[in-house]
Design a protein around this nucleic acid. Structure first.
Lengths: 143, 143
DNA sequence: TATATAATATGATAAAAATCATATTTAAGA
DNA sequence: TCTTAAATATGATTTTTATCATATTATATA
């Protein structure tokens, strides 16, 4: 439903949102440790996220990863879409392709409301907003 | 979060709930086709489900799979637990082990309510109740 | 402009999940 | 009680996901 890779990517963005800035770029190795993901693995994911404009980077000395204004306004769904592809979250819980709101499978039927709410939330909440919850002391890292 | 195998198992139980009885047992091959799962794969899962008392079976001629009264009262969570193990659904969306209601990660924080509702539903709804939705015309197979 | 530092591209390996294949056991019915 | 029809047990294979390794490219700064 949501892959390990997506989870790692979300963690990385949350970490960058709360710790980096254009003047304070963070290297792979300094991201991997605190978010608890293998360095070589997160490195690959970060590269992919850069290509898809979800995060920013600079090479060479003083280089590293950070989030610019645009990056901060990405949503969780944006991340999952890039890493896992579009459809995973849109499909019903049993991955039935003939299942939809009009003709729902039994599980879909009983879960529809909650499920829609989750998707809506993931669609609306930006990384920036999530990071704000942390600054307000409502939510917590470590990741 | 919820494996393919679990999805297949849920589909199988829903199919049996709506089509089988102790007097009308259904063979592997007649389950595999309508629920759209490879025969050899579902066979293995069905065997596991029998061992864990989630479904019933009989060998030999006139044999096959069916649900007894006890089986019909199993919940979706029961199925997922048997196939995927206990923890998968209880963990937070990012699989953080230090994340909980009191000290939630940002994602957990914004999804908590919907997520709890889903888990509660999966915990309470029995296979029998789900099948009833179908009989009442509120929900639909095919699977 | 040489050096060192950092991301990038590419691909190999390992682990897990999904799928397939088959010999064995059980039981119904002729 | 023999034959046949079914599940069961076991394990092999394939595919996908996760992980690791490294040579290449870009850039700050001495």
């Amino acid at each position: 439903m949501i892959s390990n890779s997506s989870k790692y990517a979300i963690k990385a963005l949350l970490y960058l949102a709360t710790h980096s800035s254009i003047d304070n770029k963070i290297m792979v190795k300094d991201i991997a440790k605190p978010i608890n993901v293998p360095k070589a693995y997160i490195a690959k994911l970060l590269q992919q996220l850069v290509r898809e404009n979800l995060i920013s980077s600079a090479r060479g000395p003083k280089g590293g990863f950070y989030l610019d204004e645009d990056n901060l306004n990405k949503t969780v769904i944006n991340i999952i879409s890039v890493i896992d592809g579009e459809d995973n979250l849109n499909s019903c819980m049993l991955s039935l392709n003939e299942c939809n709101e009009n003709k729902p499978c039994p599980l879909h039927y009983v879960l529809s409301a909650s499920r829609n709410k989750i998707i809506k939330t993931l669609n609306n909440k930006t990384i920036n907003e999530l990071a704000l919850e942390v600054k307000l002391g409502k939510a917590f890292l470590p990741l």
